[in-house]
Design a protein around this nucleic acid. Structure first.
Lengths: 244, 244
DNA sequence: AAGTGGTCTAGACCACGAA
DNA sequence: TCGTGGTCTAGACCACTTA
């Protein structure tokens, strides 16, 4: 069993998390004191404190010196530091979102992409054009520009792109670990080009989103430009307070 | 000096952070080993490890068992999990943003606020109406609804509200610690009411932002509805990859 | 095999909050 | 004053990486 090989502090974390989620420890109440947990789990203070530290960082509890460890509502522990994608927010509503691949090709990076990814002009990128369609309505037009050298042979994987999401493909097939991203969200009014692309009957507001994504080693490896129907989409941003 | 009262592990964190930011420890290289740091700072392993743990969570280093502690590029350590406010993004551009208080009053919470803050109908909230003005142009209309019981006497602090930001006031005068927030961002076209409020010469796209803010103990204590000129604002969302 | 970080122990004293 | 969490010590052994 992997259970037996798990470090002790991890077992304590999982056990306490389970009890908090199962409301055995009710929100607002105090967790047993550290001394009690030491006796209960038959371990040292270091181990217990390391476990509680993890629970605190994940938002399950708050420690107050002199008072105790307060149990928080587990609902509020979820989904922090997270921008929901538009696919997420629509599928939550029960709408089926399909993605159709328009084209994929290896090109010289456009100047804006050169700038964002901090690459040379000679560097090649894969340009992926896709649309997102919800209940038959095109709601977004998405351009990904991905460093060609980190995803060699991507154009041969078109079929997989239809079944897997792009990010799942990057992770499973290329073993790329995304570290962080910056989204810049603007809004503007649709013009004739957008009306054509998204089959808009009239002028509507559109989201204009630029995202740059970094790998774990700090390389910016992807830039994404998305145009999204403003009347069919909303962003939800879950934020944790900055500690500094 | 508060320097002397700082816990040891905090001093170690600050010292190492300073050296990483000053490129004394270059990105990509290894930090001195734990044993070396123990000797250098003349302290125990626990203290050194607790300091390195903080640096790792803040994105300054990555620990690899058997190998060492790798120093990351400090640029990538900044600004994660963070939604820049519109004041931020404009002041970055050198534009001075003023906030003018329209009104502040204690009212029964509107139904949407009751719902978002999960309060009873009898519960009172402070309703603060403000506009943000950049270079003489009104760019946003902001409604805060704050639980009256957590900020007693807020209406008497109107003067302070003009100098301090609202959140600074909450922190310094009421000792409230914000824990997290959820922003929901939509977009729509301005109508006559918005044209009046923001002195718009024509129909333009507007951001429509609802934010709920939680205190550290898990109480939702504030709901904010903002209407922001789409042509004068952009959101920047800094995201860290989820670890789970 | 040697050296690194990962886990863990059994203590100690301090700082804060509540009674 | 007492009980809580906060900091810290001086060890021990384990797991992983590299040579």
């Amino acid at each position: 069993m992997s259970e037996t090989s798990k470090p002790l502090y991890r077992k304590v974390v999982d056990s306490l998390k389970h009890d908090i989620e199962g409301k055995i420890y009710a929100p607002g109440n105090l967790l047993p004191t550290e001394d009690e947990l030491i006796k209960y789990f038959d371990t040292s203070r270091t181990t217990i404190r390391s476990a509680i530290g993890i629970l605190e960082r994940e938002g399950y509890v708050v420690r107050k010196q002199g008072k105790g460890t307060i149990i928080k509502d587990p609902k509020s522990a979820q989904n922090l530091n997270y921008l929901s994608s538009f696919t997420d927010s629509l599928t939550e509503k029960g709408i089926i979102v399909e993605t159709s691949l328009l084209s994929i090709s290896k090109i010289n990076a456009p100047s804006r992409v050169i700038e964002e990814l901090k690459i040379s002009e000679a560097e090649k990128v894969y340009w992926i054009q896709r649309t997102r369609v919800a209940d038959g309505i095109p709601i977004a037009y998405v351009n990904n520009y991905i460093l060609a050298r980190v995803v060699p042979g991507l154009e041969k994987r078109q079929d997989q792109l239809k079944h897997l999401g792009l990010y799942q493909l990057l992770e499973s097939e290329y073993d790329l670990k995304l570290h962080c991203a910056v989204d810049t969200i603007n809004v503007y009014l649709s013009g004739p080009l957008e009306a054509e692309m998204l089959q808009l009957p009239e002028t509507i507001p559109l989201f204009h989103n630029r995202r740059t994504t970094w790998l774990e080693d700090g390389t910016p490896f992807e830039h994404v430009l998305s145009i999204i129907r403003g009347d069919m989409h909303q962003y939800k941003v879950y934020l944790e307070n900055r500690k500094h």
